[in-house]
Amino acid sequence: MAGEITQEAIALALGGAGIGAGGAIIAQIIGGILTAKREKRKAASDRELWEFEAEAKRRDRSIDEKIEVFAAILSVSESLITVIHLEPIFGEQPLSTLRTKLSELQSHVQKLSILVPELFEHADGVFQRCNVMVMITSRSHFLSDRENLHTEINPAHHEADESIKIARAAFQAYVSHKPIPPATNN
């Protein structure tokens, strides 16, 4: 019988459909497993990337803070030296202003000692030289012979300038990840 569907043909069709459907289901399962593994690797990779970027941002914030503190040290010390050098006899600049600037400088040096202990010696050298200049200037304020001030303040000014140059070089080396030169002026 040419047009009849036999049970055998139906069984073959159902068997083929079952095998095809089973194959599709198995393919879906295998595809799901492979996709899950790929997504797990991608999630781990994304997490590593996020942690790396977070650490880089933290380091950037940290270096920005260090640069800010060191710039404040240089700014305050250079302005202090300039004021003392330009007005050694203390016409307009009260001693309290110099002492306030010196306290500000000391505060920045202490903060830097916490942030970058390896640069403390350099920053402290700058503070010590500025302190000497303030002491010389303060002493001259109470002496009647102010002519000796120039002979004392000029070498102190030179030492302070040298200390600032060495400290600046040390910080630039620190930021550039190069060896830090010794603080030879202490």
Results as ranks from 00 to 15, higher is better:
A183Q: 05
P181T: 09
E147M: 06
A2I: 12
R168N: 13
L74P: 01
S176G: 05
I114Q: 13
I136P: 11
T35I: 08
E159A: 13
I26S: 06
V109I: 05
H158P: 02
I67E: 13
A167T: 02
R129F: 02
A24H: 09
E118A: 11
L80D: 05
P179I: 08
E92V: 03
E55Q: 15
D46G: 00
K165E: 09
D46A: 08
L12R: 11
D124T: 00
V175C: 01
H158W: 07
S176I: 00
G32Y: 14
T151W: 08
A17M: 03
I114A: 12
A169T: 11
L49V: 00
S75E: 11
S140K: 02
I164C: 08
Q110A: 09
C130E: 07
E39H: 03
D124V: 00
S79I: 00
A173R: 13
N154A: 06
E53N: 11
G31I: 08
H108F: 12
V76Q: 04
R41C: 00
A36L: 08
D46N: 07
Q110G: 12
A36V: 04
N148E: 10
G18F: 11
I29V: 15
S138G: 10
L143G: 00
K37R: 14
H141Q: 09
T137H: 11
I73W: 05
A72E: 15
K165D: 07
M133I: 01
H108K: 12
T6D: 06
L86G: 01
S62L: 13
R59C: 08
Q93R: 01
R99S: 07
L12I: 08
I67Y: 05
H150D: 03
A56W: 04
L74K: 12
L98K: 09
I19R: 04
E152W: 08
L105G: 04
S75K: 04
I81R: 15
A167Q: 05
A167C: 07
S77T: 06
P181R: 11
V126T: 02
F171N: 01
I84C: 07
A173F: 15
P94W: 07
Q28N: 14
S45G: 02
K111M: 05
I114M: 11
F90K: 02
F70R: 01
